[in-house]
Every structure is written in C-alpha cells, then in structure tokens.
Nucleic acid binder design. Sequence first.
DNA 1: ATAGGGTTAG
Length: 543
Amino acid sequence: MWLSRSVRVSLLPSIAKFPPFLPMHNSLFCSHSHSQTSLHDDAVSQFNRLLHQRHVPSIFEFGKILGFLVRMKQYSTSISLIKQMELKGILCDLANLNLLMNCFCHLHKLAFAFSVFAKILKRGYHPNAITLNTVMRGLCDNGEVKEALNFHDKVVAKGFRLNQFTYGILINGLSKIGETEAAIELLRTIQSPSTVMYSIIIDSLLKEKQPKEAYGLYSEMVIKGIFPNVVTYSTLIYGFCLVGQVEVAFGFLNEMLSNNIRPNVYTYTILIDSLCKERKLGEAKNVLGVMVKVYVKPNVVSFNALMDGYYLVNKVKNAKQVFSAMTHMRVSPDVRTYTIMINGLIRNKRMDEVINLFQEMHDRNMVQDTVTYNTLVDGLCKTGRISHAWDLFHEMCGRNQQADVITYNSLIDGLCKNQHLDKAIELLRKMRENGIQPDMYTVNILINGMCRGDKLKNAQEIFQDLLNKGHNPDIPTYNVMISGLCKEGLLDEALTLWSKMEDSGCLSNVITFEIIISALFKHGQTEKAEKFFHEMISRDLLK
DNA sequence: ATAGGGTTAG
C-alpha cells in the first residue's frame, strides 16, 4: 500500500516555489469579521435585551445565545447569564442545565457540575444521554476515569440509554491516563465502533511507541469498512514521525491524498514540525507555502513549529523572519512563540535580546508561564548568572507560576556547575519539601555534579541507591557515571560499568562512545579506542 | 468523543 519514496519526494517540490512571506498573500488572511471580544459582547447585550423584554421570550432564544457563547469557550459568561435568567424567574430547561453543567466541567468545578446534576433530578427532568455524557466527560477530564466507568455501570443498570459518544468519552478517558489496554478492551465490547474511537486508540498506541499495534488497529478499521478521516491520518502521520518511521508517515500522507481526504491545518502543521525536527527546513518552509497556496491558513502553531525548526539549526535570521511574517499575516504570537524565541536566542548567546523579549511579553500583557520561566532560568544558569536566575525563580513563584521539576533541575545544575554543591543539595531538600519529586534528570545532574566536585564516592552512592530502589538507570545516567569514572582515571571500572550497561539491555548512544573513546585516547590506549570507534561505526551511531 | 508548537542531565 505504500507509495514509493519518489512519490513522497515529488509531492512537495512539485508545487511551484514562491517566497512564502510575501505581503501579497496577506490579503487572503485578513480578518473582515468582528473580533472574538466584540462578538462576545454582542451576544451578552443581546441576551440582556431578551432578559428585559416585556414579554418573556421562549427559552429557546436564550439557548441559542448560550450555545454560541459555549462554542466561543466563554464558560464563565454563560454561567453568569444563566444565573441572571433564573433570578428573573425564567426556569431553565434540560438543555440549559446540561450546558451549565458542561461549563462548570470545563472550568474544572466538578462539585458545581454535580450540584447542577442534582438540580436536574430534583426538578424531575429525565437526564438524557447528553446529561450523562457531560457528567462522564467531566469526571474523565478530572482524571477520575474509574468513577466515570462506575457512573456508566450505574446508569446502565438503571436502564438509561447511552450512545456512541459515551463510549468515545470513556475510551478517550482510559487512553489519556495510559490505560490503553483497557481502552482496547472497551472497544472490543462495542458492536459498531466508530472512526473516532479507533483514532483515539491509535493515537495513544503511537505515543506509547507501539507502532505495530497502532498499524494493526488501522488495518482492522479499514477491513471493517470504518473509514479513516483527516484526524486519523493526521494522527498516523504524527505518530509514525514520532517513532522515527518517517517513510511510513509519508505513505499515509499519500494515501489520504489518494482517498481525496484534504489535509487541514493540523495535518500541515504536523508535517512542518516533523520536517523541522528532521532538520529539513527547506521542505518545512515549502509545506507552509503549499498551505498558503491551497488556502489552508497557517495558524500560530504552524509558525511556531517552523520558527523552532530554524532555531534548531541555528538560523536566527530566518527564525526572526518567521516571527515578523506571522505578524504580517495577522497571526498573533502567543506565549509559546516568545518562549521559542527566547530559547533560540539563549542558545545563540544573545542574552540582551532575550531580556528585551521577556520585557516585551510584559508590555503586551502576556503571562509568562512556567515553561517561559524555566527557559530563562536555565539560560541564566548556563551563562553563570545564578543570582539573576534565583531572582526569577522567586518572581515566578510570586506570580503564581509554579516551579516544577524542570525549574529545580536547572537551578541545581547551575549551582553544581558554579561550585555550590552544598546549595544544590539544600535546594534538593527544598524541592522535596515543596512536594516535587526528583526525576531521572535530577539524579543525573546530581551524579554529574558530584563527579565534577571530586566527590566520586557520593556519586557512586546515588547510583547504587538508584539500583537498590529497583530503578533502571537510563543511558544518560550511565553516561555521567562512566564519565565520572573516566575523569578519575578509573578506566577499568568505567569499562566494567559499560559492560553492565550493555548487558542490562541499555544500549549505548553516541555520547557513551565519545566519553569512552576520548578517555582511552587520553590515557594512550589507542588500540582499545579504535576498537570502540569501529564498534560505534558498525552500530551506525555516527550521523 | 479524536490530531499539531515551547523548558532540564551526558
């Protein structure tokens, strides 16, 4: 079923090349409608007009406006409008109450949602499938998938009718908490499973790096005559790129095209992102050009992916061009756009520009989130500006952006590398106090810090502790430990550990080999070094 | 009911 590589390759360059950032294309994307804010305000004032009419309008009129607001994700507004309705003595119907419950669920106010459910029962309304599905989705979104399943069993026992959506919600809930097996089991109990159900599970399998199983389900749905749609194909393209099988992914792209399923902004953005991660910036830029040409409007995600790609290959100028191009095309940068810019500029040691951008976010009333702060904190640590990083750490806490394991890891690493091992240990303790569990990065940073600080014994203790607790060290853990042993000239011990690593099924990467080879050379063991070098080549680890 | 972008260790 796969089309040849030549088909795949010809697909993109066959489209006429043109500079994707010319202003002539801007007119395609100019917005002629009201902004979202004014639409929201219009809806609210129309609602108020209805509310104050002399003759009470039908409940259906209110419902239309409320439905619109929910589609615009204005949950808080919808809730307050419904409250005003009830205060005026206009009784909500079942649809309004379902909608109200839905709004509370989206705002993660599950207790309020349940009180609405109680109200539905108290008023003698008969909950319909939408009511029950909303309850289950609320539970699932809150991570309470088991409770959703119990709820399902209970209402089924009471004779309520459910629908396809119910099982989509439950399958999605199970998949998103990593219970893909259970999701598949549930799928097996459904007489006529849908495209959506298959798509959800295929997505989970690919994210868990189980491409064979995902492919199996895809074949199964095709055989059963359940047609993959644009989401299914986009999921497959994304997932197969994720597991490194780019050829297969492009096979799916060709297949969707030959099935006359048109790629949408998601599909194109996935392609841009995947090509960028493969460092094929020329092709990625062409995809953006194709999008423009076929009138699929790139959005902020498309531009962010491309920008990040340019920074990945250190093309600062091109990245900045993307930044201004998106503005010209009236696509507003978001927090991630700025974070990508900040991250890229840090990697290119342009700290003054970074500080300016951070200030610009402030000026634009953008809320810097944990990731933005993490990026900057790490950048400051890496350039030795520990005290500035420390200030930002406090600033983020003060602004209610929770420091997470990554924040602490960056700071601990910075402290270790600037001769403050004691302060690093102190911060580790503080991190635990704040309820944040150290992860593999923390362990590796500490082992590395100990080795650098001539505390090989402590590093080995941490490593042994990891083994004692039944954790498997990962490649970077072995790498830092091997590197520490090499640094002390303990080459035999390093090579023993390397053997253990390989025996445990943890296969070396290019960095492992670099550490070992350079240590062997340094100690005049040229022959051994060459042996490792050839091993590395035969494993195809050199790009 | 389903798909896409940003941060940490070697």
